[in-house]
Structures are given as C-alpha cells and as structure tokens.
Design a protein around this nucleic acid. Structure first.
Lengths: 339, 339
DNA sequence: GCGGCGCATGCAAGCGCTTGCAGTATTCTG
DNA sequence: CAGAATACTGCAAGCGCTTGCATGCGCCGC
C-alpha cells in the first residue's frame, strides 16, 4: 500500500501538506493542492483509516445498531442509512442486536468501545436503561430512530398520530366496527411503538364516540403469518364481525388480506383493510396504508448524525429532535361501507 | 477512554505485557495474565482498534459487499454473516454495491482501500473483471458467495443441480407440461445464477425426454409481483397450459401461487408450484422449494474467511472452494398429476 | 558445574498519519 | 511605506498500541 510519504515525495512537498491538501483542513495553495491530488491519484493513494483515526481521533465510520437484519422494515431503513453515509464518504459498521442478553452486553461493553466509530445510529431499538447509559458513556453523538427515548436524540414518527390517521380514514368511510391487529400489551422491550399505535387507534375511536370493544382487538407478531392468523380469528368469530381492520403493520395487513380472501370475503367490498409502513408489497396488494418512508428515515438519521459531527467540529450547537413525516396512501383495500 | 498504560500501571507490568496478555500472543505467566485481566476489566479497558490496527496490521473487521440490503435473500445471508463474525469478535463493515457505476468504483477504489478490513465477503455479486482485479489487489482474503468466480475463492451452491432437483421432483410427480419462470437470457451482470437455474431446468427436461417449449418459459424479475405477472401470462395464454411451474426463486413462486388463486386454479390439484431459496414465507404458503439455507451460507462465509485469516497467521495453507448444501423441501404446493 | 535453552518480561522503535508551532512570503491597512 | 495580518509550508511530536530484541532467571543434560 502506498503511503503518504510517497505522495509527498512525488508532489515535492512535506507529508503535512499532503495531509492538509487531501483532507481540506488548513490552508494549501491551489497549485499545491492540485499537485498533491495528481500525485495521490496517480499513485492510487488512499489514506489509511487506522493511522488517520489514531492521529486525528476521527474514524469516518458510523456504527449502526439494528434489531433484525432480515425484516423488511429494518433492512430498508438500513439501506437508506448506508447510501446516505456512503455518499458522504463514511463507512458503516453494523451491529446486529439480538435478544441474547450476553451478546447485547458484549456489543455495548466491547464492540462499541473499540473506538471504531464517530457516532451511533440505533434503528428502532428499545434500549434498557443500562444500555442507554453505556451508549452515553461513549461520548459520541447518538441518533435513535423510532421509540422516543428522552435520554437520546431521536428521530421519531408520531405513532399515535399515524394510527389515528389510519383509523380516522376508516371512520370517515363509515366504518364503526373496526378491528385492530397489533401487539399484545405485554410485549418485548423491542416494541414500544405498537403500544402507541394501539393508543392512536383507541383515541380515534373515542373521538368518534365509538366504544372500544375488546373482542375487536387481536394481538399478532408483526409478520404476514401473524396477521393472517389474527384476521382469521377476527373474521371467524361468531357474532360481531368487523367491517374493517386496522393492522399495526403492512405485513400483518397483508396477512389479513390473504385471510379474508381465503374466507371468501371480498376486499374492499366486504372488508376494508389498512396498514402502516409503506411496505414494498403494498402496491402489489393494492394496500391502503400510512407510509412512513423507511428509506427516508434511514437517510435522515445518517444526515442528522453527520451534521451533528460537523457541527461539533465547527462548534455549532446541535439541532433538536426531529419528527419524521408520514402520509396516508389510499389504494384499493379500503372503501366506503355499504349498508 | 482508558488506555493501555493505565492497565499496565494498575497491574504492575509493562504495556508490552498487557498487550500480550490480552491478545494472547506471546508468553505470559498465568498469574500475570490474571492480574492484567482483572485490571483491564475493572478499568473497563478495551483496546483501541485504530491503534491496534496501525501497530499490528490487523483490524478485526471484515468488509461485506451486498447488492441489495432490502431483499430477503441478501439480508438473510448478511444476518448469518453478521452473527458468525460477531461471535468471533469481529466487526463488520457494510458496503452496499448498487448498480451505479460511479458509486461502485468509489467502493473499490476508495472505501475498500482504506485498510479498514482484514478480508472481504462478497455476497452474490457478479463482479466485473476490473472489480475483481481491484479486489485482488487489496491483497486480502476474499470469499464470494454465489456465482462461481474462477478468480476468487467461492462458496457456491450448484445451481444447475438445484434446478434439476426441483424440476425432477415435478417430473417424478408425472408432470410433463412444466413451465419455468426465471431470468431472461440478457439480464443484468448481477445475475448469473438464474442462467444456471434455467440450464438445470432444461437438462432435467431433456434427460426425461421432454422437449423444451419456449412458450412455457416466462421471464421475471425475482420479485413476488414479477412471479405473479409471469404466472398470469403462462396460465392465461390460450392453448397449452402448464400443469406445473418451476420458479427460479421462492418469491416468484409465491407470486405464481397468488396468480393461480386469482385465476381460480387450485394448488396443488390443478397446478403444482415449486420454488428455490427457502424463503421465510415458504412455510406460510406451504410452498415446496429447494432450500439453500441462506443463513447458513452467511455463517459459512464468515467462518471460511476467519479460518483463512487464522491459517495465514499460522502459515497453514488454505482450503479449496466449498460447495454449499441444498435440500428439496416438499410441502403443499406440489402433487402428483391426476389424469 | 557449566553451557545452553526456553520462558517471562521490559525496552523502545515504530505503524502512518495529523496538527500545533514556527518561519517565510505575501497582502492588507492606514 | 511601515507594521500587521494573513497565507502557505515544514518540522516534529505525538496518537495508543504491537513486537523484535535484549535481559534475567531457572532448569536440563552431560
């Protein structure tokens, strides 16, 4: 690997000047900069990240914490993060936080402490108190996407409002017997968001003067299969059958769609279904949903953390937690209730 | 952040001894090692990756190249890789290789040359000649999963055999009018594998003395929606209707399933469908498939590269390219052809 | 009893950069 | 036109580790 000395020699300057010319820190005349750049390019020189990090304390690398790699939502957010970071020249180091206590600990106590990253993005991870503390101890900028964590800068969508929006859409279409598929009240710590969605659902009903009926709630695990089973329960039960289902995720909504089909219900004539997320399959299933633009979420988180890093560098103060956009996308799975 | 000096002071030894005790390189008496470990733990010391990398040339970090982050297959492989690497104390730096020429170039010419990684895993990426060359120039161990690349160590499943297996399963069930949904012959460079799958399909037919009929081939893009459209074509066409469909991916197979349902065909009574991959939704759809255990592929790649790294360290010679396992999983979407 | 060997440890020289400080050259200000 | 400010560049001291070499010591074999 070619080193900075070779570039310096070739350009006829000191290594200090090469460093300054290439990093853009400090003054270098245009002529010199050009000579240095030419030399660097012709030699194929790329600064060694470890040497540079050691000397400067900057790594040009961001750590990303994800709970699941193989679920659409998370990998989509990650994808957005990755492309935004790479656009700005940053590398991305991935930490897959599973439920395994021991493994989680080692991430917080070892992996993240290797001084390999300049900042951390936590994607939809409900962190324990101690984990949050470990994260703060790192002394690095941290941005969390998802569940609002008062002790960290967060980028969140207002999940209560999102759920209200979806529910109000159904109410506006004349539905009153609206079922909800969401997380059961006593769920994993990785899910705080579902609770807020259920809350929004209940608020919307209450505002419309519709009493909440426990029989119209069915818990599921946020997968297609979970949604399928839940919908079968809701639709197969004797007595009060819902005319609409609000699922707390698109995947569950799709499951509900398939269940309805299998039971012979026509969607949206016999049953309206709305989800949340903006899943890639939504279009295919003509699913009405509240899109939360996960790709954009990832990009925003990346930009936010890099801005913070640069602001820190420049001494500027950092921004306040931002709210993420969402939008009702009406497609073919919801319709006015026919009497 | 606490440094090695503090640990050395606390343990009453030199920094050299701390380094040796903690890294396990060189001789340290048990008593000393224990004292060092206690000191390190009580101070919360973790070696600085940049300092360590700079001094030793080892980064404890593996670069992973992925074409798509948000497609099930790739994120599943990645997930396997991530967990295996983290188990062995390695970090993982993610490079999302898009189709964007310019961006790809910068990955090969800049990002990967920062000396941030000890090795590279390329997940199902068809690399251009120049890209392969850039990769080799790094002088690092490289493991490619997927499309066999004679210039790199690869871990591949025999896609021809996989496709034969799926097709032979249909033939054994009495099917002769078997359609194939796969990649069109002139596809992106990221897909070599589909071609091999088509080949296996054709071989199996030929071996059984069944003439290939172009009308029973339909190209698609490996998504559910693509499979859906392709199946609609195949099933909606006048004349020769297939009694079975072999899709080159589970996602396309699922699309085909949905299309068949929509057209009123019963699966498997009227139509058998088989896919490839072992998709997580396969179970839900009762899909017969040839599982290629993507999670395991990721783990194997990780283990292979770490083994190679350690072998290099120890001077042992490295292993030959390995073949990945696959298995026909018969579920509910294939059945004997009734006359 | 002595040379030789291997283990345990320390010394100190880097690894390849960045950056504070200092020295010059150049430009600006009044 | 003097004095000050500013732009450009180089020197060299690290950044926090790792590791080759040297040292000291106890033990072995003959």
């Amino acid at each position: 690997m070619v080193s900075i000395d070779e570039v310096a020699r070739r350009a006829g300057v000191s290594t200090a000047t090469v460093s300054r010319a290439l990093s853009g820190r400090g003054h270098v005349s245009d002529a010199t900069r050009e000579r240095v750049e030419t030399a660097a390019k012709s030699l194929g020189y790329v600064v060694s990240s470890s040497a540079s990090s050691l000397a400067s304390g900057r790594t040009r690398n961001i750590g990303v914490l994800v709970p699941f790699l193989d679920r659409w939502f998370f990998s989509t957010v990650l994808s957005g993060t990755a492309s935004a970071l790479m656009r700005r020249g940053y590398d991305i180091t991935l930490y897959n936080l599973t439920a395994d206590r021991e493994q989680r600990r080692s991430i917080f106590e070892t992996f993240l402490r290797r001084q390999r990253v300049d900042g951390v993005i936590a994607i939809s991870i409900e962190l324990g108190d101690e984990e949050t503390e470990r994260l703060r101890e790192l002394g690095l900028p941290v941005i969390a996407i998802g569940g609002p964590n008062p002790r960290l800068s967060t980028l969140t969508v207002d999940d209560v409002a999102v759920a209200r929006l979806a529910t109000e859409h159904l109410i506006a279409l004349g539905h009153r017997d609206i079922a909800h598929i969401g997380a059961s009240p006593e769920f994993d710590i990785d899910f705080h968001i579902p609770t807020r969605r259920r809350l929004g659902f209940e608020q919307a009903l209450a505002d419309a003067g519709i009493p909440a009926r426990p029989s119209l709630f069915e818990p599921a695990d946020f997968t297609i299969e979970g949604g399928f089973r839940a919908a079968k329960q809701l639709l197969g039960r004797p007595g009060e059958r819902p005319t609409a289902i609000f699922a707390a995720s698109d995947e569950m909504a799709i499951g509900a769609l398939l269940a309805a089909r299998e039971l012979g219900y026509r969607v949206p004539e016999d049953l309206s279904v709305v989800g949340i997320d903006g899943h890639e399959l939504g279009e295919f299933f003509r699913l009405t949903t509240v899109d939360q633009f996960p790709l954009g979420q990832g990009e925003r988180a990346a930009d936010a953390i890099l801005d913070e890093l640069e602001a820190k560098d420049a001494g500027t103060s950092r921004e306040e937690p931002r709210h993420l956009p969402y939008e009702l996308i009406v497609r073919g799975t919801t319709a006015r209730l026919e009497h």
